[in-house]
Design a binder for these strands. Structure first.
Lengths: 249, 249
DNA sequence: CAGTGGTCTAGACCACCGC
DNA sequence: CGGTGGTCTAGACCACTGA
């Protein structure tokens, strides 16, 4: 009796605690998009049988997914793939295309610059790698309904992500490509307000010195820097929103 | 044999699941500051005996505290109160005094305005309560080493927090007082960049139209708005920083 | 009503690491 | 070595809620 519908892997990967293995077995098809939002996740009883684990173990795996927002649970009706998958941590600055489309606007981006930096190029400074490390420098504009929403200045550490050198980034934006192709373990955001210098105000289509919201993001894989990006937004066209709950007493 | 050192409550409060009751019994003295950072939390075995619960139950309570950053755990050496208590969610915009002092600067604040709003006053609009609800309007400046770091415009819903009407906010800043005296269940931040209008640029001690980082925060208790605050920061004197980890695969 | 998740127990073995 | 937390099991009862 072959299975017609996508299923979680029948075997675990043997790496680490069982509950984390089960977690991965469920998370993978969700993050890959193999399981549509709203579709049913096997019940705890099913998973106990499939993986031969105790219910507490299965429960911990699924609870962990629920607390990260990948699934939603309700008694009786069961567990479903989250309808609105989690914003990447906190603010929607990870995938601007999704954000624009979520608001019902048309998204488009444009590559303005793509340079393999020579050693000593000062533009490579912020990423924090030894001089001589191969770096790719990119500049893009992102549009919402034809209006510039974001100017992106990006450095990619080709030592951490050699495949990026082969990408022309004509069709897929650097941020989206990195999100899907390069592993990272840590990221840091810094948010500031700056008046736009001339080099920025022109492509961003704002007045010189207009207030801009600037997001800098550094991303690491272990201790190795992966990418550094500086995102400029016209202050009057963008806001970062986040919702929080208190640390429970 | 009386106990000389602070202890968790001997009895649970009977409210909700046992693991949450144990969690609260441990979290309370930590958040109150009764247990110094770095001091030892009773072992799981101790807590099993004290509360007559199974070890899995105790473990879940402490694991939950660890994941919120209130305690740190290590095998053999045990569980200790976190040395660096968690930043209030994500960014250090909850308690600017602590943030300033963490950087080794001297903190001071100054109350500029304190008005009980009349019904119909347009300044009360943003908090989103029915007209006629008593509202307190406050304006403060916060200094770091004598330099203005933040201008705070705040609304407090006195229906949600009647005690605030008795506070003169001369010595304790409104934000800090609310943090310690009013319960909240949800908060929302919106971060934007704006050029400073004249009414802001003067007290903030920046040039007119200078780029400012503006944080708006709305806080609710259940469905009732508690406070609304608009925080203006000179763009060149403030940055919001946050660190993140990926949603695990 | 019956299926589902939420919680809880009383054990067990193991890994880590300070003494 | 022994105390600690990390994990796991095989049961159990309960609360919620959709059919």
């Amino acid at each position: 009796m072959p299975d017609a519908l996508p299923e979680p892997a029948r075997d675990l990967d043997g790496d680490g605690p069982i509950w984390q293995q089960i977690r991965r077995a469920i998370a993978r098809p969700i993050l890959n998009g193999d399981w549509a939002p709203g579709s049913r996740v096997p019940s705890e009883f099913d998973l106990m049988e499939r993986y031969g684990a105790a219910r507490m173990t299965v429960h911990r795996a699924i609870r962990s997914l629920a607390s990260d927002g990948l699934v939603e649970r309700r008694r009786k009706s069961g567990t479903i793939v989250a309808v609105r998958p989690p914003e990447r941590p906190v603010f929607e600055i990870w995938n601007i295309a999704a954000e624009v489309e979520r608001r019902g606007a048309a998204y488009r981006f444009e590559l303005l610059e793509r340079v393999l930096l020579e050693p000593g190029d000062e533009r490579g400074g912020p990423i924090g790698v030894d001089d001589g490390t191969p770096l790719l420098w990119l500049v893009c504009r992102h549009f919402s309904d034809g209006q510039v929403l974001q100017l992106e200045e990006r450095l990619i550490n080709l030592a951490a992500s050699p495949d990026a050198a082969e990408q022309d980034f004509d069709r897929v934006s650097p941020g989206l490509w990195l999100l899907h192709n390069v592993a990272w373990t840590e990221a840091e955001h810094a948010i500031t307000a700056e008046g736009a210098p001339e080099a920025i105000s022109a492509p961003l289509d704002v007045a010189p010195d207009a207030a801009c919201l600037v997001v800098e993001r550094r991303t690491w894989n272990g201790l190795e820097p992966v990418t550094y990006v500086r995102l400029w937004h016209p202050g009057d066209r963008h806001r970062l929103v986040g919702r929080f709950k208190p640390v429970r007493a």
